Amino acid sequence: MTEQIDVIVIGAGAAGLMCAATAAGRGRRVVVLDHARKPGRKILMSGGGRCNFTHLHSGPEHFLSANPRFCISALRRYPPAAFLELVERHGVAYEEREPGRLFCRESARPILDLLLSEGRQAGVELRMGTGVRSVQATAEGFAVATPTGTLHAEALVVATGGLSIPRMGASGLGYAIARQFGLPVQPTRPALVPLTLPEHLRRPIGDLAGISVPVRVRCAEAEFSDDLLITHHGLSGPAALQASSYWQPEVPLSLDWLPGVALHDELAEARRRRSKRALHRCLEAHLPRRLARVLCDLEGWSGPLQGFSNRGLEAVAQRLQEWRLTPAGTAGYAKAEVTAGGVDTDALSSRTLEAREVPGLHFVGEVVDVTGQLGGHNFQWAWSSGVAVGQAI
């Protein structure tokens, strides 16, 4: 069976559904293809099932890309306030956790329902459980072969996402299509992902699994202050996930275990009071007991404060506030929230996300080399890029 339509969208995730509804709302006949049985599975599991659907202050400084300015056009034309207006129009109950981070109050389902409703009202046709066998350029646009027939359209939108969470059907199809049409692809890697510990730290640190503490972590040019969660295999929690997007193999992280604490002054004052307490007991004022003891054991610090010179206390404070750790790696795509890297933005128009050398071919969302920090920025990129393409095709 051969079918002629206006727009084919490959991928029924956040960006693909947003793009399809926008394009159909302009009178275009749109078909969305996805090999999964149900749409928006990643939406439903995100944010602990409550979907951190945007960040009120999302801007280019919250994104990682080979071209950091690429996202500006789409974000300006469809900012967080625009999506929030859509959320409120659909009566979705939401709440703000931490400044700017918006979550559904009960479950993520209303966000998916919102997208499906917008698409349904505009006439979007969803074809789930429909894999893509091949994509070819034609004189009139593109031909996409599926198990049930071939669709022809003048515009093709690739909204296939990245490689994250393969158990939910993630694949490299979007990157393969880009390469097929001669578009460069920036190297991909897991992002917003737990970091694993080197062998010599797996037991002493891993045995502290379940402990969560506020830290400041620095990696390359990025710095984040948030909670760090110790797991059996490594480091997780917001601080580690944020740093992971910027981390490269064999590059050390710098951890400040006591952000905002004038540690040297506290220790020096305790010594002046002739305290007989051991160093690890003094650290327990700010750190969980087991963590304080393990850090002291790893550094070889023992005995009462009276045994430390002033220079020794300075060294202790500096070490704990610039504790260097080189992760062994990451937990991989299976545990990554997103994929960093992707279709090179130099090959795309920042206004329409159309391939410069292939008219009618567009890429949206995670498949593009635009990766947001934790906090709703990746969903905002999905909405903004989806609208940008939907308005252009």
Rank of each mutant, 00 (worst) to 15 (best):
D256Q: 09
G25F: 07
P184D: 14
I111V: 15
R311N: 15
G390Q: 09
G59E: 11
G131N: 07
G16R: 06
A262L: 09
D346S: 14
P194A: 06
D227F: 09
E95A: 10
A176Y: 01
V87K: 08
G332H: 01
G376A: 07
A315Q: 14
I8S: 13
G25L: 07
L241T: 00
D297A: 14
T339Q: 08
L229F: 09
D34M: 04
G91Y: 01
D369C: 01
Q318W: 11
R120M: 12
R101D: 01
A36K: 14
G25W: 07
S309D: 08
D6V: 04
H200K: 10
A153Q: 05
I10L: 12
G48F: 00
G25C: 08
V135Q: 11
L291H: 11
P147V: 04
A220P: 07
G234L: 03
E354M: 13
V135W: 03
S225F: 06
E284N: 13
L229I: 08
E85P: 00
E250W: 04
L253A: 01
G307T: 15
A155C: 11
W301M: 07
T326Q: 14
G161P: 12
G169P: 05
V193T: 13
P288C: 01
A243V: 00
L291Q: 05
V135G: 07
Y333S: 03
E299A: 14
G129A: 07
F142R: 11
T371G: 02
E322M: 08
A262G: 08
D265G: 12
P238M: 05
V157G: 10
E85N: 10
E199I: 12
A240E: 00
A170K: 01
L201A: 06
E354V: 04
G386A: 09
L114M: 15
V30E: 00
F308A: 07
L361H: 13
A176N: 05
S275F: 12
P252H: 02
A139M: 11
A122F: 02
I177K: 08
